[in-house]
Nucleic acid binder design. Structure first.
Lengths: 168, 168
DNA sequence: CGCCAATATATGTAGCTACATATATTATAT
DNA sequence: ATATAATATATGTAGCTACATATATTGGCG
């Protein structure tokens, strides 16, 4: 079903406006479906995101700072998310011996197990390539990259989170 | 900048996975920039969404039910959002005379004025067609429609919010 | 060494979604 | 007509982002 029907709006000011709104709308749809999938593993999407980043460290622990940098939501509160994962015994957190300000977070065996199970569901949950081809997916991803760039650079008045060197 | 650099992930399981993650990531970027723009008008995106739906009623009031149906976030809490708008005197809310369960929400002149100012900024904030063409925007929007559909239909196990007639 | 800025994390608050439940009102069935 | 189901809204709670601020620790400079 197209977005026109789903939010009962059939007149758009431009396709650019429609594309922006559709990105937000599709994001919600993905989150809703993804959250339902992860709920079976008692995980939220940001928590799952953290577990995956930790695995990407291949044994090395990750600081909260590193987690924040790599998370999808940069201003997510990795500190409190780690708290939640700690309560479930999916991660351990120890003070970094070299820098007592920092903290070293790493997966527990239980955390690895949960992650693997969630990954299996996640793979099943993604669109099948016959329904949404890899070529279309690449095209979509590239268009999204360009849309972000356009929003960032086109109207510096409102563009926060600029790159270094932009107008201050 | 491509998503690969922005979240420091360069290995993807598939372009489908990358497209899904990029949709979430781009959604955040849009929300961050949009929120910054709307903040100057003391509005949040859901509040702005409601004001626009109310204007779309062309004078007719809208019930909370209608607002919920047309909002981008279906499970947003229109009731509480209307509360916020009420406090700012941007809308009025009166019990519906025909159905005393329902409520009629409509814009105040002040609400209309705020909406017009926000709209002006919103138009400036959207990507310029020379930076992101209307054709690309249409292509993007269509791909997003198809991605949602693929996620909804491809794996009924996790697909919530199904259309009527789907597998129960 | 002692002071101060920078860094890493934690905490507090407001606004949001998601989901469950409560309340008031209307429609329906017997 | 009364009980019950359905509807429309409101309220409560948990988890999230966004932003501001607090705390602890480190590094650098005099």
């Amino acid at each position: 079903m197209s977005i026109d029907n789903e939010i009962q709006q059939h007149k758009w000011e431009s396709f650019r406006q429609k594309a922006v709104v559709n990105t937000l709308f599709t994001c919600r749809a993905i989150e809703t479906a993804g959250a339902a999938m992860l709920k079976e593993h008692d995980l939220s999407m940001p928590q799952y995101n953290i577990l995956r980043i930790l695995r990407g460290q291949k044994g090395k622990p990750a600081s909260v700072k590193l987690l924040t940098e790599r998370m999808l939501d940069k201003s997510s509160n990795a500190s409190r998310l780690v708290d939640k994962l700690l309560e479930k015994n999916l991660v351990v957190r120890v003070t970094c011996p070299n820098d007592r300000r920092a903290v070293e977070v790493s997966l527990t065996p239980e955390g690895q197990a949960v992650l693997e199970k969630a990954d299996a569901d996640n793979a099943r949950w993604l669109p099948h390539p016959k329904v949404f081809s890899e070529a279309d997916a690449k095209l979509l991803s590239d268009l999204l990259d360009r849309l972000r760039e356009a929003i960032r650079t086109n109207h510096p008045d409102f563009a926060k989170n600029r790159e270094q060197g932009d107008i201050p």
